[in-house]
Design a protein around this nucleic acid. Sequence first.
DNA 1: ACCAATCCATGCACAAATGCATATCAAGTA
DNA 2: TACTTGATATGCATTTGTGCATGGATTGGT
Lengths: 309, 309
Amino acid sequence: MHLCMDWSAVNFDWNRARAFLVTAEEGSLSAAARSLGMAQPTLGRQVRALEEELDVVLFERHGHGLVLTPSGLELVEHVRGMGEAAGRVALAATGQSQSVEGPVTITTTEVTAAFLLPPLISKLRQNHPGIQVDVVASNELRDLRRREADIALRSVRPTDPDLVAKKLMRESARLYASRDYLRGLEQLDGADTLKEAQFIGFEDNQPFLKGLNDLGLGLTERNFPIRCGDHLVQWEMVKRGLGIGVMITAVGDAEPKVENAAPWLPAFEFDVWLAAHREVNTSRRVRLVFDFLADEFPKAAANLAAKGC
Amino acid sequence: MHLCMDWSAVNFDWNRARAFLVTAEEGSLSAAARSLGMAQPTLGRQVRALEEELDVVLFERHGHGLVLTPSGLELVEHVRGMGEAAGRVALAATGQSQSVEGPVTITTTEVTAAFLLPPLISKLRQNHPGIQVDVVASNELRDLRRREADIALRSVRPTDPDLVAKKLMRESARLYASRDYLRGLEQLDGADTLKEAQFIGFEDNQPFLKGLNDLGLGLTERNFPIRCGDHLVQWEMVKRGLGIGVMITAVGDAEPKVENAAPWLPAFEFDVWLAAHREVNTSRRVRLVFDFLADEFPKAAANLAAKGC
DNA sequence: ACCAATCCATGCACAAATGCATATCAAGTA
DNA sequence: TACTTGATATGCATTTGTGCATGGATTGGT
C-alpha cells in the first residue's frame, strides 16, 4: 500500500473530457448537446475550457461545424478509452442497482413491440408500478454490451459469451395480402403466379429475397417496387392492398383484411430468444423483467394466435 | 457513419466518478480531498451524488473512515479503467501542448536535486521565465507513463520502449566520513578495519549492503545501526560524525568536513540517464528542458567537481 | 478515563456552471 | 439575390456546486 499516490495527472475536469468526446464523435456541438440532453452553449464552453485546461487546440472553428485538429485527433483516441470504461461503469452500475424502481429498456422488432409487447407491459406495470419500461423498436440489433438496451427479444441466437440467453418459443411467419389484391392476380393455383406479383420489401432486401427464393419462388428485385425499413408501415401497405408482405402468423391470421397469399408454401419458422447482459442480470429489476418475459411472452403469443382462429 | 449513437450510458457525471475513484484508492474522503486539492465536503457530496445517480451504495459509513461495499468494490474496478485512460489523456495532452509557458516536472535523486540541479534551474529560468519547474526529489523511481513526472534523471537505464533516454555522463561515488569519526577508528590501513565501522544505511538496505560486500568488505546488517531513507539526512549525519556514508565524489570531495573513508577502494561508477516519455517529449517546453539538461547537466557536474579540487 | 487526532456530516455565503433567448455566420436552393 | 436551414458564439437570470467553519463521532495512546 502506497502512502501517497499522485493524482495530479487525472485532476482535469472529466466532464469536459466527456463533452469533448461526444462532440468529436457526433461531429458538432449541437448534435452532442442533443445526445447528452444538454444545451449547445454548455458543450461549447466545456470544450473550450478543456482546451484551455490542457493548453491544446482541439478543434478548428470555421463557421460551419468543427473539425478536429491533429492534436485533437490524437487526444480523442485516449478520451475514447475513458468513454469505453465509462460505459462499463454504467453497465456494472445498473447491474449492481438493487432497486425495483427505475427504467428497464427492452429492444425488439417493431412487430413484436407493436403486437405482442403491449399487453405484457400492461400486466408488468400492474404488478410492479415502480418499473418504467422503455421500448426500443428496431430491426437493427442493438448492442447490449453498450447498454443501448437491458433486454433484447430477437429471432437470432446471441453469440456473445457475456450475454445470458434463453430460447422462449418457436414462431412462424407467412406471406399475406389483401383480398382485393389477391383477386387481382389471375390465378392462384401455383407458385409461378407469384412471379408477377408485387411484394413489399425491406430496406435491406437481400435476406428476404433469398429466403423467398430458397422456397423456389424465382423472384427478382423487380418484384419489390415498394420498400420500407419499417415493418409496421409495410403491414399497413399490405392491408391496403399494395402488395404481398410477410408477417408472423399470429398477427396475419388474426387480421380480417388479409389472407394467406401462398397457402401451399411452408411457413418460415424461427426461434425467439430472450437475451440480457450477464452483469445487468444481477440487477433486481432487470432480472424481474427478464423472468417475467420468459414466463409470459410464450403465453401471450399463444393467446394472440388463439384469438385469430 | 452512424446517424445517432447512444450516449445515455456515459451520461452520468464523470467528475463524480473521479471523486469515487480517488476516495476508494486513498481510503478516505479527507485524503482524497488533499490529493485532488479540493475540500473534503465536496468529495463527500460528489460520492453521495454518484450513489444516488447510479442507485448503488458504494461505501459503508461508519464513523471512522469509509469501507467499500461489494458493489463499490466491483464498480471501482471499472472506474479505475477510466482513471487509467484519463492518465493517458493527460500524458498525450502535455505532449500536444506547444506552449513554452507552463509547468515541467523533473524527478531525480535527492542528492542530484540538492547539489546539481539548483544552478541549472536558475539558468533555465533566466533563459525561459515562462517555464515553471517542479522538482520531485525521490529515490523511488517515478512512473513517467503515469505522468508522475515529465523528465527523469536517473542512474538506471530506462527499459520501457515508450521512453526516450539519453546517456549523459558517467558518475562516481565513494565512502565518506568526518575526520573525527575516522580518527576514532584505530587503524585505517586495511579493508578489515571497516568491519567494525558504523555505516549510515538506507531504508531498503539490501542493494547498498550487497554493493559494499561485492568489494570484499564483509559487512553485515550489524554495521548499519542508523538508517534513513533520505540521502540528504544521511549526508548530514555523515558530516556530523555519526558514521560512514556514500556520496557522489563531486559532492564528497568538495565537502571540507569529510574525507574519503576508504581510499584504497575503487569508486562506484554508474551512468546518468536522462529520460522522458515519447509523447511528452513532443511538447515544446518539455523538449526544451530535456535538451537543456542534456547539454548543461554534464557541464554542471564537471564544474562542481572542479571546484572541489 | 481522558485527551488528542482524525474522520465524516451540515449550514451558510459565494463563485461557477448551466439553460434560455438571441445574434451571427456559412452553405445550399429557388 | 433573397431565403431557409443548421451551425457556433454571447448576455443574462437562475440553478448548481464549492469552500470554509463548525459540530459530532470514533480510534489510539497516555
